[in-house]
Simulated assay, not measured.
Amino acid sequence: MTTPRRALAGLATLGVLALVTPLAAQAPGITVDQPWARAAIQGGTGGAFLTIRNAGTQPDRLVGAATPLARSVEIHETVREGDVMRMRPVPGIPVPAGGSAELRPGGPHVMLVGLSEALRPGSRFPLTLTFERAGSVEVQVAVQAAGASAPAAGHRH
C-alpha cells in the first residue's frame, strides 16, 4: 500500500472510531430542562436555575459552570441558619442515576458573579455546565423578570 493510501485508510479508521466512541462532551444520559435566570444589573450578581435529568445508569454530579458574561461562576446552596437564609458555595450537586436535581430560587443554584453586562428580560446567554462523568453541556439560559419565581413554560434543552 502506498503512503497516501495508508494515510487515507488511517483516516477512514479514525472516522469509524469517532462514530463508535462517544465524546465526553456529549453528556450521555444528561438533559437540562428550562434553564432560566432572573434579570440582573451589569456588575452585579445573578442566579441561574434549571433541572438536570440523568437517564443513565450511573450517578453524576454537577461540578462547575461557566459563562462569558460573569467574572466567576459558583455552584451554591441556600441554607437556613437560625432565622437567616444564607447562600454558600458547594463543590457539586449530585444527580442520581435515573433521577434529577432541581436548581431553583431558595435552593441549589448557579451563582453568576461580576456580570459584564445586564441580564435583560427576554434575552438569552450561554452557560456551560460541567459534570463529573458526562463532561460539558452548553445551554442557552432565558432571562426572566427580576422577581420571577419560575421559568417561562416550554423552555427545554
Results as ranks from 00 to 15, higher is better:
Q58E: 15
L69S: 06
E77P: 02
V63R: 05
I52L: 15
H76N: 14
A70V: 07
A66Y: 07
G46L: 06
L62Y: 01
T78G: 01
N54Q: 10
L50E: 03
R71Y: 03
G46I: 06
I75K: 04
E74M: 13
V73T: 14
Q58G: 07
H76T: 12
L62P: 00
G47K: 05
N54W: 01
R61V: 13
T45E: 13
G64H: 05
V73K: 02
T78N: 12
S72T: 15
A66P: 00
R71A: 14
G47C: 07
A66E: 09
R53C: 02
G44S: 11
A70P: 04
T67R: 01
T45S: 14
V73M: 05
N54R: 08
T51P: 00
T51W: 00
A70Q: 02
S72L: 08
A65W: 00
L69Y: 12
F49M: 08
E77M: 10
T57H: 09
P68D: 15
V73E: 02
A66L: 08
P68G: 11
H76G: 06
L62Q: 01
I52H: 01
A48D: 05
G44W: 06
A65T: 03
T67Q: 01
T51I: 12
H76E: 09
G43C: 10
I75V: 13
A70C: 05
T57D: 13
R71T: 14
I75E: 00
H76C: 05
L69D: 13
D60T: 04
T67C: 04
F49N: 05
T45N: 14
S72C: 03
N54E: 13
F49A: 07
G47E: 10
T45Y: 07
Q58A: 15
A65F: 02
A48F: 03
V63K: 02
I52Y: 02
G64E: 08
I75M: 05
R53Y: 13
P68I: 08
S72Q: 13
T78M: 09
Q58P: 01
Q58K: 14
P68V: 11
G46M: 04
T51A: 14
D60V: 03
H76P: 00
L50M: 15
S72F: 02
E77H: 11
S72N: 09
F49T: 07
G44K: 11
G47A: 14
G56L: 03
A55C: 09
L50V: 06
G47Y: 12
T51C: 05
G46H: 04
G44I: 11
I75R: 03
R53W: 10
L50T: 06
G44H: 08
L50H: 03
V73S: 02
A66T: 15
A70R: 04
R61H: 07
V63I: 15
A70F: 06
T57F: 05
A70M: 07
I52Q: 01
G56M: 04
T45D: 12
G47F: 10
D60Y: 03
L62G: 00
E77Q: 14
A48T: 15
D60S: 06
N54C: 09
T51V: 13
